[in-house]
Simulated assay, not measured.
Amino acid sequence: MDSLTAWLTKVRSLLAPSLLHCLICGKTSRPAAGLHGICAVCEEAIPWIRHPRCQKCGRHVGCPDCSRSGEAVPIVCNRSAVAYTSVMREILGQYKYRGNEQLAPLLGSMLDRAYIQLKAERERRQQGIAEFQKAQRVFTSPIFRGKQSASNQRWQADLLVPVPVSEARLVERGFNQAERLADVLSGFRGIPQLPLLVRTHHTSKQSFKHRAERIADMKHAFAGNPDVEVLLQFEVWLETLGKRTRPLQIVIVDDIYTTGSTIRACAGTIRTLCDRYGKAAEIYSLTWARS
């Protein structure tokens, strides 16, 4: 009888749903279905940005910044995974300031949702352009028919570039959070990532500044990475692309998009670098959160 009881207990434990210690709430609970390391309750509460209201910066609510600025924006668009709520702020704080590096795979997998959204949007746009051109009878040559046309409607980033942190910030935190996020996304999607940028000077924390202060602070804050090995890797990567005619699809990766001043400064520097090599580039950005 004792052996039967033990056997039944074992069977029940195997059939019962496994529990985990949630990385967000800290409770032992039923695991989430779509994200590793968190419970189902916390997954349900994640404020995903599924339908960006601003098509340029990816903001989920009304966006006065993009509409009031008359300046040319050096990125095609930004997409963010989640809205920067108080709960998301706490999660980022645990990872970024309190060194909970267990959160890196989770945040990276959340960022992957933003990449999927960006990819789907670009492919829908390319599909629309192809259908319009077909309707206008632009494609009359056989070269544009069949498989060639279908392949043109697929979109994939060519390169991920993390936003760099200053040496002081790197010493303080022990890691670059944007680079870790880019590493996870690179592993998911097979997209290479290169630290093409460096900070030219240390800036104080942007979260304490107004929009105008942030924009002024970010001017000339970034430069091309002078490291010979990084530049060699970039040149080798360019060679692997061959004589491709379409622009490079480069994605800047960061943890949070606030005013966009950091992203714009990085994009301007990347564009200058590409121009130096005679390469046209379309630059996008992905951030974990949008404030």
Rank of each mutant, 00 (worst) to 15 (best):
M1G: 14
M1Y: 12
D2I: 13
D2S: 07
K10I: 04
V11H: 00
A16Q: 14
A16G: 09
P17K: 05
S18R: 10
L20D: 12
H21F: 12
L23C: 05
I24G: 00
T28A: 14
T28S: 15
S29R: 06
I38D: 02
C39E: 07
A40F: 06
C42S: 02
E43A: 07
E43K: 05
I46A: 06
I46Q: 11
P47Q: 09
R50G: 11
C54P: 01
C57D: 01
C57R: 03
C57S: 01
P64C: 09
R68C: 13
S69Y: 00
V73P: 00
P74D: 09
P74A: 04
C77P: 00
N78A: 04
R79N: 10
V82Y: 10
V82R: 04
Y84M: 09
Q94D: 15
Y95K: 00
Y97E: 12
L103M: 06
G108C: 01
G108L: 08
M110C: 15
L111R: 07
Y115T: 10
Q117T: 10
E121H: 05
E123A: 09
R124Y: 09
K134Q: 13
F139T: 04
F139V: 06
S141F: 02
S151W: 06
Q153L: 10
D158F: 04
V161D: 04
P162L: 07
P162W: 01
S166K: 00
G174R: 02
Q177A: 01
E179Y: 05
D183R: 14
V184Q: 11
G187M: 05
G190T: 11
G190N: 02
G190V: 06
I191F: 02
L194N: 02
T200D: 03
K205V: 13
Q206A: 13
K209E: 08
R211F: 12
E213D: 12
R214H: 05
I215A: 12
M218P: 01
A221W: 11
F222T: 08
N225S: 00
W237V: 08
L238G: 07
P247N: 10
D254P: 01
T258L: 00
T259N: 07
S261Y: 02
T262N: 01
C266G: 12
I270N: 01
L273N: 01
R276Q: 13
G278P: 04
A280H: 06
I283N: 10
T287W: 00
